[in-house]
Amino acid sequence: YWITCCPTCDVDINTWVPFYSTELNKPAMIYCSHGDGHWVHAQCMDLAERTLIHLSAGSNKYYCNEHVEIARALHTP
């Protein structure tokens, strides 16, 4: 949970406070499906809480801010 998930990541173990109602003692993470995949903080991706809950409940693929354009290009005929 205490990783630098992207170039603009500002989640710090020493200063972090809950942002989403689902967070208690660690930041919400979401899995990016690009390549071998990697974890990113939901807050760093500017996800709305409703979107985070929807993604967490389903089996939808998610692409982080850095990889979403690549994913779109691969799926565009």
Rank of each mutant, 00 (worst) to 15 (best):
K61R: 04
P77W: 05
K26L: 10
N60H: 09
G37V: 02
H75P: 08
L55W: 09
T4I: 11
E69D: 14
N65K: 10
Y1N: 05
R50C: 15
T4E: 10
D46N: 13
G58H: 13
A57D: 13
C44Y: 00
A42P: 01
H75G: 14
L52D: 04
H54M: 09
R50Q: 11
T76H: 07
Y63T: 15
L55N: 10
D10H: 11
G58W: 10
H38Q: 01
E23C: 00
S56I: 08
N14T: 13
Y31D: 04
G58N: 03
A28E: 07
I30L: 15
Y1K: 03
K61Q: 15
N25I: 10
V40Q: 02
F19P: 02
C44D: 01
P18Q: 03
H75M: 10
V40S: 02
M29T: 03
S33H: 08
S33M: 08
N14Q: 04
T51S: 11
V11Y: 02
Y1F: 09
W39V: 06
S21H: 14
A48D: 10
I53E: 06
E66K: 09
H54I: 07
L52F: 06
A28D: 04
R72Q: 09
E49Y: 08
A71C: 11
A48Q: 15
E69G: 12
A42M: 04
S56W: 09
S56P: 09
L55T: 07
K26P: 01
A73L: 14
C32R: 00
H67S: 06
A28L: 09
N25A: 08
A48I: 13
P7E: 14
R50H: 13
C64M: 00
M45Q: 13
T76N: 08
E49M: 07
K61W: 07
A57T: 08
G58L: 13
W2L: 02
H38K: 00
K26F: 08
H54K: 15
Y62R: 02
M45E: 05
M45T: 03
G35V: 06
L24F: 03
C44L: 01
T8W: 02
S59P: 14
G37P: 14
C64S: 01
E49R: 03
H34S: 11
Q43E: 03
E69P: 15
H75I: 12
L47E: 04
Y62S: 02
C9T: 01
M45W: 03
T76S: 10
G35K: 13
A48M: 11
A48G: 09
G58D: 13
Y31Q: 14
Y63I: 13
E66A: 11
Y20S: 02
C5R: 02
T22E: 11
V40R: 01
A42I: 02
Y62C: 03
T51G: 10
Y63S: 06
R50A: 15
H54T: 08
N65F: 07
P27Q: 01
N65W: 13
A28R: 05
T15H: 13
H67T: 05
W39C: 03
W16M: 00
S59Y: 11
A73I: 10
H75E: 13
D46Q: 14
C64W: 00
Y63Q: 11
S33Q: 09
D46Y: 08
P18M: 02
A28P: 04
K26E: 08
Y20M: 03
I70H: 06
C6K: 04
N60W: 06
S59K: 14
S56M: 13
Y1P: 00
I53M: 13
V68I: 04
A71T: 14
